[in-house]
């Protein structure tokens, strides 16, 4: 048995070596990656402060990469020690807030996607003298929770913007694809779309199963051939939708919420028509920066009103401007 295993491993290793020696890719790969400058300016000389950044992100969602990168960029500039953590369950996220209180952090940035679960602990932090800002979710709840400011978009308004866009483009029937059943923010987006474009149907897919999501969208397009627009609520699903449209032999167009690097490419090539951008990088950046400003200068961004980072549209007309930043992983 041992001999047989060794043989297998040796064969495999040899295969890899032989292949690796004469098999460098002539295109793509890391060799073409440009070192993007990024925000590597001077670091503030204010005293080091500790900020807890707690989101409801599920592991492995490209959207939150951008939020995190923004937060990290601000932290680097402001001499902030950033503690980034996330938990999709409301109760778990509330617990993370409690641990931040226990650690006596100097500032707290938190998403309020599930405000009912979060309210008590966030309020406790604010009452205990920790400056709190909210971002991304909870536009109705942040003031009650004692937060100093809110950075994000109103999901309903963002949805309405997309719905208006559909009407403007003369779409007949759309399907709104939700990748996580029971997610309040995603439901609000689809509801917003429906507000301005009534002929829309909801479709649920399993976000952690990309090929399965693809076939589900394909089957929907095969079932209802009158669908001429697919609206997805996350960039990776828009790219899967493009394949579904092709598989189903449909002529439907694809629009989406949120972006990532590959999606920018898809807009440029015309596979995806447009994306509703809520500027996640900006949300992360502003959340950390506002805590720093509050601590060092007593400023509040937004002056008691929510600071809207979206919705803005990225389409073929303005994609070139965004593309450069997307390649660096910040848009």
């Amino acid at each position: 048995m041992v001999r047989w295993q060794k043989k297998a491993v040796a064969t495999g290793a040899a295969l890899v070596l032989v292949a690796a020696l004469g098999a460098c890719s002539s295109s793509g790969g890391k060799q073409e990656e440009e070192s993007s400058g990024g925000a590597a300016g001077n670091v503030a000389d204010t005293p080091r402060m500790k900020v807890a950044f707690i989101t409801h992100a599920a592991p492995g969602d490209t959207f939150w990469d951008l939020v995190r990168k923004g937060a990290e960029a601000a932290a680097a500039k402001d001499n902030v020690e950033l503690q980034y953590s996330g938990a999709p369950e409301g109760a778990d996220q509330a617990n993370l807030v409690q641990t931040a209180i226990d650690q006596k952090v100097d500032g707290l940035a938190v998403t309020l996607a599930k405000p009912d679960a979060m309210q008590a602990n966030v309020k406790k932090a604010a009452d205990g003298g920790i400056p709190v800002v909210a971002l991304n979710g909870g536009i109705e709840a942040w003031q009650a929770a004692g937060a100093l400011g809110y950075f994000g978009q109103d999901e309903r308004i963002a949805g309405q913007a997309a719905g208006a866009k559909l009407t403007e483009l003369g779409a007949k029937k759309a399907v709104c694809v939700i990748q996580e059943q029971g997610h309040v923010g995603l439901e609000a987006r689809c509801q917003g779309v429906k507000d301005k474009f009534p002929n829309v149907e909801k479709l649920y897919i399993t976000g952690t199963d990309m090929p399965g999501s693809q076939t589900t969208m394909t089957s929907k397009l095969q079932q209802d051939k009158s669908i001429d627009y697919v609206v997805t609520l996350g960039a990776p699903f828009a790219l899967a939708a493009v394949k579904s449209v092709k598989d189903a032999g449909s002529s439907a167009k694809v629009g989406t919420f949120d972006t990532n690097k590959d999606l920018i490419g898809a807009i440029k090539s015309g596979d995806v028509q447009w994306a509703v951008d809520q500027q996640p990088y900006l949300q992360g950046y502003l959340a950390v920066d506002s805590l720093w400003l509050y601590k060092t200068n007593g400023n509040t961004i937004g002056g008691g009103q929510p600071t809207l980072t979206g919705p803005a549209f990225i389409d073929k007309g303005n994609v070139a401007a965004v593309e450069k930043f997307a390649a660096g992983g910040t848009r």
Binding site: G12, L15, V16, A19, A23, C24, S25, G29, K30
Partner: peptide, 17 residues
């Protein structure tokens, strides 16, 4: 494949191992 800029088949073989 991406990190070492190799032909993707190399990555395929490495993955198998």
């Amino acid at each position: 494949s991406y990190q070492f800029s190799t032909n993707v088949w190399v990555g395929v073989a490495v993955s198998l191992v």
